[in-house]
Amino acid sequence: MTVQTSRLSVRARPRTRAVSRQTRKRRWIGLLFLSPALLLYGAIVLVPLIQTVNYSFYKWDGVSEPTWMGLQNYLEFGRDPRMYAAFGHVLVLIVMFGLIPLGLGLISAALLSRAKIRGEGIYRWFLFLPQVLTSVVVAIIWKRIYAPDGPLNTVLRWVGLDSLTRNWLGDFTWALPSLGMIGVWGGFGFTMVLFLAGILAIPDELYEAARLDGSTRWQEFWLITLPSLRGQMAIALTLTITGALRTFDMVYITTQGGPGDATTTPALLLYQLAFVNPDVGKASATGVVLALLCLGIAVGITRMMENKDR
C-alpha cells in the first residue's frame, strides 16, 4: 500500500515538473514579447520619473551648471503663493471635473436606465462628443462663449439679467469656476454613457425582485444600481480626477493662468517654470508633488471601492 502510493507520487512528480518547466519557458517568451514595450516604457516614463526627482534637488536654469539645493525647492512651496494657488485651484477643478460629472452622470443614468428612449444612439453620440473633441478646440469654443461680447453675456442680456454679465474669464472670482464649468460640460456625458452601460449589465431579475418586494425607485437606486456601478464609478473618478490634475490645454488657451494667478494650475506652473523662465528644479519639484498627489488619489479611490466591497 505504502509502496504503491509512493510509486504513484514518484510517477506524478516528473509530470508536474515538466509542466512547470514548460510554463517557465513560456514565461520567458512572455518577457520577450513584453520587452519592446517595457524598454520604451522604461526609457520614456520610468527613467525620466527618477530624473525628475533628481532634478528637484537642484537649482538649474536649463543651461548653466546646476547647483545642489537639497530640499530647498520643496520648502519654497510653503512660501510661494503661486504654488499655493495652483494646488488650491486643483481642488476646485477636482470637484468640477470629477465629482459633479459623477453625480450628474449617476442621476441622469438612474433616471433613464430602464427607459426605452427613441433615438438613443443619437443623443448618446452628442452627449459623448465633448470627450472626443480636441481639447484645444473645446478651449477655444468656451473662450468665445465667456468673452465679454460672447454668447453667454448675449443670452444674459436677452433675458434681462444685464447685471450678471461680465468678462467671465477675466474676473478674479469667476474665472476658475468658469473653467470648471467646461469640465462639467465635458465630463458628464462620459460618466452618463459609462453608467448607462453599467446599468444595462445589471440583470433585470434584480429589479423585478425588488419591485415584487415593493421597493421604491429610490431604494432600487441605492440597493441595486449604485452598488452595481462601483467599478464604473472608480473608473470615472480616476479618469476625471487625473484629468483635472493634468489640466493644461484649457488654461493655456483660455487664460494663461490669469487674471493674476486666479487660474494657474500645477501643470501650467510647471510648464512656465520648466520652459518659459527656466527654474527647472522648482518645476521638477512641482511635478513630483503632482505625481504623489495623483498616486495618492488613485490609491485612495481603489481603497474606497474595496471597502465598499466588504
Binding site: 520619473l49 530624473q51 505625481a291
Partner: peptide
C-alpha cells in the same frame, strides 16, 4: 507598468525635454 497610468505627462516631460 500600471503605475504609468497614474503618472501624468507633466512629471516626466522635463527630463525628457532636456
Amino acid at each position: 507598468i500600471l503605475l504609468g497610468m497614474m503618472v501624468s505627462t507633466e512629471v516626466i516631460v522635463i527630463p525628457l525635454y532636456y
